[in-house]
Structure formats: structure tokens, C-alpha cells
Write a protein that binds this DNA or RNA. Structure first.
Lengths: 236, 236
DNA sequence: TAGATTGTTAATCGATTAACAATC
DNA sequence: TAGATTGTTAATCGATTAACAATC
């Protein structure tokens, strides 16, 4: 991995997708692939693939292409999913449970060490063998357990205060599902999953497509109308 | 709204965030705001805000700024969240339930018309007053009900086949939570929420920050070592 | 060796920021 | 009117694509 200059955010956000496709190739038993073949599958340019990968070093071989397994492992290293990440989930509602139940995360080295909630009726319950603790225990738990990542699946009203507590307790990263932005120091990573914003983008695109369809139909109707006129009036 | 040329994806993806901040301003009772004030709150440049908004027309007024309420409503129109969107949820697991239970979506005009599953033990259950139907009923349900959007909260193995059925049944948009890409015709919108990819980006950033910290400490240790040498050896 | 395909430089394209005239 | 702030053009910056020499 070439040290030094910053790698652009756009490149990073594409890496997990490369990783996913390489995983699928491995499942298909494909051992090598050229940037061109991969570009067809992924619907991106071969140039972009080569450019992206060369940010981290030469993983390919001229005249051969890329070794699928090797590239897969290298990307895992870059993304840090070869290491173990300990995480806690704050908010044991449906979303928190969905994450706790998604076994692929544990497979990728993301280990759920604890779950927290403020609702008395859920505290003490077990979800996939993880006990739901009272949020009061947050600080003492973090003092005793090494945890890097906190998942925030709580209402937006509670999120900023909890985020502050997490930062004070030394958490390194927050995976934020609350519908609000969090203010944290520079050395704390926040990755937002704003589902409602995602749904609005979907809405925009649906509406634009609908508008297009309607416009097309209007034009069609207009043309039909003109032909009608032509029939009744004079023809050139 | 100025018709014509395509608006860039980057602009669209920022609109929901503007919308969120404008909503908060309204709650605070703020009636007008300048691009500069807003830029401070949102941590973007004022130039970008003005440039973004002017893609859709002049919503502001020189010497005054923007009327919060007016801008809020205009963005809602652009995003199409002033209209009603009917949706179904396919997969009634934790993630599907989380979406069904998130009342803000209904508030924004996204109405959940039905839920579907293949697991016999959940079919017939009610979630927030919505009955979980067998996936076998999908086509007949869509024939009888006007539904634009389908939310896919099912395993990646099932997703492509279900997506095909949805497209055939005339669905206009898929909100895809399955960890796979879907192949659909051009006139069907897909918005992906790939949580595992999001988590990998988080992992990358955590690791880079950790590496930085470690490097700093190493340098510090080196410096300390040199000083040590200096003490024992000669000083200039 | 010849053919294939990478790694990398150069060219293009698009998005962001700066600047300022228009105007409320 | 003077001051403020937009709308918009121009300048800069960054990301994507094309091209090709290097090399397996």
C-alpha cells in the first residue's frame, strides 16, 4: 500500500463494490479477470478500475489481468476488514436488531459486543445471545471492553447527547442511523445512513421519470391532433 | 422549475439535506436565512447552496436571502414528496419492520400498502395494521392496487428473482436493501442501500485514522530516542 | 516472440468555488 | 439611497476517460 497522498473519497466508496464482485467471481470459480471483463460486469469503465486500484499499488500483471483471490484479499486489507472490529449497538429496536441479526457482519470481522437501550421493558432481553443493557451502563461497559464502533439506531432527538457520551468514552467511530448530523471531533469517524434522504432521492427520480412519460404522451396526443387537422383541412 | 437540461446527481443528493436543515430552521421559528448563514450551519460553501438552488429557479431575493418556509415547500415539490407514494415492503424481517414502523415516512407521503414474505410462520401477522401477505399474492395485489415503490428487505439470493417479478408487474421503483445489484430496465428506478458497503467505508476510515495515530506515536518515540542520544553524546 | 493487458500519463469532462454585477 | 445578498459568469479544482508505452 503506497503511503503518502490522500486517496479520494470516491475511490474508497467504490472499493466495497469491487470487493463484492470479486467475491462473486470467486464463488463462480473464476481465478483471473481483466479490467475489461470486470468493467462489463460492473458497468463501469476499465480505465476507472485500473486507475482506482493503482492508488494502492500494482495488483495486476500485464498480459494476464488480475488474480481474483489475491485482489480480493488485498482490498480486504485496504478496507481493514481483515482486522477485527468490536462494536456496540445503541437502540435495540427493529433496526438495531436487524443489524445484530445480520450474520455477514460478524463474518467480516465486525463483532457485536453489546446492545443498549433506555426502555425498561427491553433491558435484560437477549438478541442473538447479546444481552440488552441499560444505557446507564454505557460508560462502565466501554471502560471495561475495547470497542471501536458504536451503531446509533435511536431517534434523532436522543442521538446528539448519546454521541457526546460516546466521544467522551473514547469511541473511535459512529455508524449513525439517526436522522440528524452529529458534531464530533476530527478524530472520530461518522458514517451516516440517512434512510429518509435515500427515499427522497428515490422519490425525485420516480417523479422525473413519471413527468417524462407524461410529456411523451402529451406530445403523442398533440401529433395525433395535428394529423386529425391535416385530414380535415388541406394537405400540402 | 426550469425544464430542460439534466440536473446532476450530486445536486439531487444534497437536496434532502437542505430540506432537513430548513425543517429544523422552521422548528426554531427562523423565517429567513441567507446562503451564508445556512452554509455555516451545514458546513458547505454558500456558493454551492446558491448554485444548487439555482438549478431549479430563483428561490431567493437579493438583499433578503431565502424565505425558509417557501424554500422548504419548493424543495418538497422538487423531490416529489408533496405527492403521495404508495409502497409495499417485501421481506417482513427486522429491517422491513423497521421501515414499516418509521412513522416519518407516512408523514412524508410514503404510504405502506402491503407487506410480503415467504415464511409461513409470519404470513397473516399484522405489523402496524398492515397484514403480511404471502409472496404468491404479489402479482394479484399489484394488479388491484396502485403501487409505485417496492422495498426489498430480503436476502440477496432471493432479490434478483423478486425484482424481475416486480418489474413485470409494472413497479416503477425499487428501494433495494439486498446486498446485490439488480438488473432492471431503464425506466425502473433502483436506489440501493448497501449497509455492508457503508460499514466497510467506516472500517477504512477508522483504520486510516488508527494508522495515523500509530505513526505519530512512532515519530514521537523516535524523537524521544534521538534526544536520549543527544544527551548521552555530544550536543551542538 | 507476439498478443494481451496492465500501469500511467495526458486529455476531457464535470463539479465546486470565487467573484461580481444585478437588484431587492 | 446604501447595504445586503442573490443569481450568474468565470476560474479552479478534481475526477473520469482515453491513449499508449511498458511489460508479462
Amino acid at each position: 500500500m503506497t503511503e503518502g497522498r490522500q486517496i479520494s473519497k470516491a475511490v474508497i466508496s467504490r472499493l466495497p463494490r469491487y470487493y463484492r464482485y470479486l467475491g462473486e467471481l470467486m464463488e463462480e470459480g473464476i481465478e483471473r479477470i481483466s479490467s475489461n471483463e470486470l468493467s462489463v460486469r460492473m458497468k463501469v469503465t476499465a480505465s476507472q478500475i485500473r486507475q482506482d486500484l493503482n492508488n494502492f499499488g500494482g495488483f495486476g500483471q500485464q498480459g494476464y489481468g488480475y488474480n481474483v483471490r489475491y485482489l480480493y484479499d488485498e482490498i480486504a486489507k485496504i478496507l481493514g476488514i481483515d482486522r477485527q472490529h468490536n462494536l456496540i449497538i445503541i437502540g435495540s429496536g427493529n433496526l438495531g436488531q436487524a443489524i445484530a441479526n445480520y450474520t455477514n457482519f460478524q463474518k467480516r470481522g465486525f463483532l457485536i459486543k453489546g446492545m443498549f437501550d433506555i426502555r425498561p421493558e427491553v433491558i435484560g432481553r437477549e438478541i442473538r445471545g447479546i444481552r440488552v443493557r441499560s444505557l446507564d451502563e454505557l460508560e462502565s461497559f466501554l471502560a471495561e471492553n475495547e470497542v471501536q464502533i458504536a451503531t446509533l439506531t435511536i431517534p434523532k432527538t436522543e442521538a446528539p447527547a448519546v454521541a457526546d457520551r460516546l466521544v467522551k468514552a473514547g469511541i473511535k467511530a459512529i455508524w449513525n442511523f439517526a436522522h440528524t448530523d452529529l458534531n464530533v471531533p476530527d478524530d472520530v469517524v461518522v458514517e451516516n445512513v440517512h434512510l429518509s434522504e435515500n427515499l427522497m432521492r428515490l422519490s425525485y427520480r420516480v417523479c422525473r421519470l413519471q413527468d417524462e412519460r407524461e410529456q411523451k404522451e402529451r406530445k403523442k396526443a398533440e401529433r395525433a391532433h395535428k394529423t386529425e387537422d391535416g385530414r380535415n383541412g388541406k394537405r400540402s
